[in-house]
């Protein structure tokens, strides 16, 4: 029997929002050596947005992402991807780890690293065909690395490798992209190239969640933020959640020099 519209409670509304969300975190708690790194974080990331996870060093931002993806085992809590488990949503989720760097000892060309991201799609008996080559090159073009396709991955700079790993995620043609500090330690050209790609993904209806620590670019890059320091401090659109008060709590009133506290500018 269909419930009448008036009976839809706040709880039902939340559940409905959760169903539509590419990633919902409930009570996520992670501890290292009995010390909580992330404590009881709830979050609902909205579809078609670029969301930032913001907070100081050691706030558990990367840990939260890694726990959601099952890289570290959470002590408690659960992550729901597209209303289902990660295992059932894998083809819709792509991850770019923090400063993934491939050692010089490993002989792989840039195309091989990007192609490797497609193997789980192919399955045990799948064959790597011409259409896959096309997907790999298209992904490299999106990040401006097509000229480096046959270079050895170990020869590239950190920023270039970061772009290759973004291309690897793009080749997977996911709906949700999770990035861990994509702008940390990269050159300005790479930063511009990456944010351009993220905004393009958003306009295609994709969802992007990125761990980020540079406060000066938050308003420019993100639609929504989750401000945290072990616990969640605020969450929502940048205008309402990225406030001086929230940052004051997150950074314990000791914003490092050079970090600009956002000022509300008159419209």
């Amino acid at each position: 029997m269909q419930a009448p519209l008036e009976d839809v409670t706040a709880r039902d509304a939340r559940e409905r929002a959760d169903q539509d969300s590419p990633l919902v975190l409930r009570g996520m708690t992670v501890a290292y050596d009995q010390k909580p790194a992330v404590f009881s974080v709830d979050a609902t990331f909205r579809s078609g947005k670029i969301s930032g996870i913001i907070g100081p060093n050691g706030a558990g931002k990367s840990t939260l992402l890694r726990a959601a993806l099952g890289v570290v085992k959470p002590l408690a809590g659960r992550a729901t991807f597209f209303g289902s488990t990660l295992a059932r949503s894998r083809n819709r989720v792509a991850y770019v780890p923090q400063r993934a760097s491939v050692d010089w000892d490993f002989p792989a060309r840039v195309v091989d690293v990007v192609a490797q991201g497609l193997y789980r799609r192919l399955g045990l008996l799948g064959r790597f065909g011409r259409e896959h080559d096309g997907m790999v090159m298209a992904a490299l073009e999106r990040v401006g690395m097509e000229d480096f396709a046959s270079r050895q991955i170990g020869q590239l700079s950190g920023g270039q490798q970061q772009r290759v790993f973004l291309a690897r995620a793009l080749a997977q043609d996911a709906r949700l992209y999770l990035l861990d500090e994509p702008f940390a330690g990269v050159d300005a050209a790479t930063e511009r190239a990456i944010i351009k790609v993220l905004k393009a993904l958003r306009s295609e209806g994709g969802t992007v969640i990125a761990v980020h620590h540079d406060l000066s670019t938050v308003e420019e890059y993100f639609d929504e933020v989750l401000v945290m320091n072990v616990r969640k401090i605020s969450a929502g659109p940048v205008e309402t959640a990225f406030t001086p008060e929230a940052l004051d709590i997150a950074y314990g009133g000791r914003l490092e020099p050079g970090m600009r506290v956002p000022q509300k500018e008159p419209a």
């Binding site: 890694r66 993806l69 490993f106 490797q116 991201g117 789980r120 790993f165 999770l178």
Partner: peptide, 18 residues
């Protein structure tokens, strides 16, 4: 082979991809 290569390229990435 592919799983071994995956953990060689990046362990976290491999774990995240199952």
């Amino acid at each position: 082979w592919h799983n071994l290569l995956a953990i060689t390229i990046d362990r976290d990435l491999a774990a995240a991809e199952g």
